[in-house]
Design a protein around this nucleic acid. Structure first.
Lengths: 188, 188
DNA sequence: TAGAATTTTCAAAAATTTCTGAAAACTCAA
DNA sequence: TTGAGTTTTCAGAAATTTTTGAAAATTCTA
């Protein structure tokens, strides 16, 4: 039975193309897309056939998707094959990708910069460079904390926040009024 | 004069490695890093020499950085060469990258899905797949609007919001209280 | 308008990433 | 145990991306 037809096909191929922007390669993107839209769990042979890729490639792709915690293993009674399906809701998957990307895109740089900023600069030019590095560090650190905060919000709050739109500005003003001149020691 | 020394060197090389995660290739990442930490504008020959890359590569890299609006062209009196320096503050650069990535990572998929969801599914399986696609669409659409909202906030508000930390939850509660049962037609 | 200085282009080479498929490893029922 | 069914591994092949460098194009000055 042909698994990839019509709309599903277009969707899966597109996710393959976008895959690289999202942090995985073409076939991993396609596998994730197919496992997401296909209601029933699929085994490695089905994936290989549907996507026209080798069995070995599927095995590696599944390993990567498991590392991202984006798919989960299922078993069917009387069948020794491993079946896979997308793990959790679309929302949960998005959070997982978001959190994983935060780790990969922010943490290594924060860690390098922290190290870097401990050393005293050797000369004037290095001193100026270090100033810039500190600016980069401060920004990325703030971004990282914000991303972490967001990924810890429960779905209801996250939804509320994202739906605020330009209401965010008003809400921030509201807060100023309520808190008055009170200090700002909320984070950390 | 050796441009790449000590800390600067480590920083530039690291940005090269991270470059691909951030949307550009190694040498483009290095060029941006160097132009960011180096106070004085640099010309193409200086970049090529400092980074040990070819003149042609520098030319293409600069073109890309200009397309991202991350560098700006400068001229020195009595010198025909083009000099470049990082465009705007670190904050401004981060916003530019954020906005550019929103366009590249979200818009193409939104556009495909919008198209996709206009068609009626051919069979039951396609109908189920389309349901999932709608979930993906709704989520990405929300994300896209949120990202757009954020990138339009002025720096003060953005900073306030990012520093809220877990205060976000309290703020959202506060809003509920103030607005009471009022409707929620804020966005769009 | 010539020609020197500079930048851009792009075909081919190099580097890197992804994919294949056969062999090895694993698992389980008999 | 054995061996059939299944998954994993990984060296080499294929595909893709990046880089080079020489030639073409552009820009400026004289």
């Amino acid at each position: 039975m042909e698994l990839l037809t019509g709309q599903t096909k277009a969707f899966v191929l597109h996710f393959g193309e976008m895959g690289s922007r999202w942090g995985f390669n073409r076939t991993v993107g396609q596998m994730l897309a197919l496992l997401t839209v296909h209601a029933e769990p699929l085994n490695a042979d089905q994936l290989a056939e549907a996507l026209h890729i080798s069995r070995g490639n599927v095995s590696m792709g599944l390993k990567e998707l498991q590392a991202w915690r984006l798919v989960e293993l299922r078993h069917k009674p009387g069948d020794r094959k491993d079946y896979f399906t997308a793990a959790g809701s679309i929302w949960q998957m998005a959070r997982t990708v978001f959190e994983e990307r935060r780790k990969r895109e922010l943490e290594p740089t924060l860690s390098l910069l922290r190290q870097q900023l401990l050393n005293d600069p050797d000369n004037e030019r290095e001193a100026q460079a270090q100033e810039k590095m500190r600016e980069v560090y401060d920004l990325l650190e703030l971004l990282d904390q914000f991303a972490t905060t967001l990924s810890r919000l429960d779905e209801r709050d996250l939804l509320k926040l994202m739906k605020l739109g330009s209401g965010i500005t008003r809400l921030l003003e509201l807060r100023e009024k309520v808190k008055g001149g009170a200090t700002n020691k909320t984070s950390r």
